[in-house]
Design a protein around this nucleic acid. Structure first.
Lengths: 182, 182
DNA sequence: CAAAATATGTCAACATGGCTGACATAAATT
DNA sequence: AATTTATGTCAGCCATGTTGACATATTTTG
């Protein structure tokens, strides 16, 4: 996973309390660094508990998620998204296929491809896991005022590497279209 | 790390594009789920490269970060924050101590305690890693308008388990005070 | 068509960083 | 004096990442 970071003796201070007072000069993001760590930890913690019952881990979760969101995606595309080696992917993918959560279909144009699809069973699990996370997110947006969703979306987008940013947005938009018309 | 999630056939759609149009009913957080995944991946990716040169991993990063932010913290406190076993902590902590990034001092009141402190060397590394992440964060806040920091802070805070939330905020506030007066 | 490139899978070995269980030691508490 | 607490340590297991070497089927190219 990942981490937080820290340190430096001279933060401009007055950052992590309650009111406003942001942007003290340019370096005072300790609060964001740590909040991101704790928020992400809890965010991924919800699904973890469910996954335990299936002898699955986070790796399975990630695979199932993206396959379900992008029906018919190529193995190579999945590797790009997950940023892992095909050997690592192969291990968890095989388990998901063997246990009937994902199926692979030969590509029609290119028969070397093994296009990936979530089975109804896989879709159900993926949805159940997503539901947990969606509940946390919507609860947060409920606590904050309207506009919170948009603000979070903009913040998270701006945190992504500028190179990938467009690709990520395209991926999300494409997945939305794919799942919407079904 | 953790994961994203996905699925469900009937998202209210029209979420991940460009304009406004949020909150379509209550369940449409797929964009946030995936953006959080990619944002966090890039966020922790920066330090990873630096850590490679030290034969350190993310585990070391986390330990060094919190020790540096909370000088003199007890081992037990660190275990609570990281949410790992003492055996897991012991492994990376030992390496950080052996290589001179962290020192342990006997507690004055309770001499069973081994209070943790970052050495100047440890502080330097911690700061260097934090700087990378701070740059990403400040770049993001620069792209977005003013108020972005505050909005991100509120969003991330609301994403934390309600139970821990106060404790986390106290921890961050305390760390800020500790590092500020130095 | 034959040769090369591509998409995918697989075997083997290794590293990191989680985990459990069992003990050990010193210091504080009862 | 007995117990509890704070910490450390040994040993082994598991999940998930890595590299390197091949194998197979299919498409693309010269």
């Amino acid at each position: 996973m990942a981490d937080i970071n820290s340190s430096a003796k001279k933060p401009a201070a007055t950052v992590a309390e309650g009111g406003g007072m942001t942007q003290t000069g340019g370096d005072a993001a300790w609060d964001i660094i740590e909040l991101l760590f704790f928020a992400y930890r809890d965010f991924v913690g919800d699904p973890d508990e469910v996954l335990l019952k299936y002898t699955f881990g986070r790796a399975h979760h990630r695979v199932l998620h993206f396959v379900n969101r992008n029906p018919g995606m190529k193995v190579a595309d999945l590797l790009d998204i997950l940023n892992i080696t095909k050997q690592s992917l192969g291990r968890v993918l095989k388990q998901l296929v063997d246990q009937g959560f994902i199926v692979q279909k030969e590509g029609e144009q290119d028969r070397r491809q093994r296009l990936l699809y979530a089975t109804p069973k896989g879709e159900a699990l993926s949805h159940r896991l997503a539901q947990l996370q969606t509940e946390r997110i919507n609860r947060a947006f409920g606590e904050l005022g309207p506009g919170a969703h948009e603000a979070a979306r903009r913040f998270l987008t701006a945190m992504i590497d500028a190179d990938n940013r467009e690709g990520v947005l395209r991926l999300i938009a494409r997945a939305d279209r794919a799942k919407t018309r079904s």
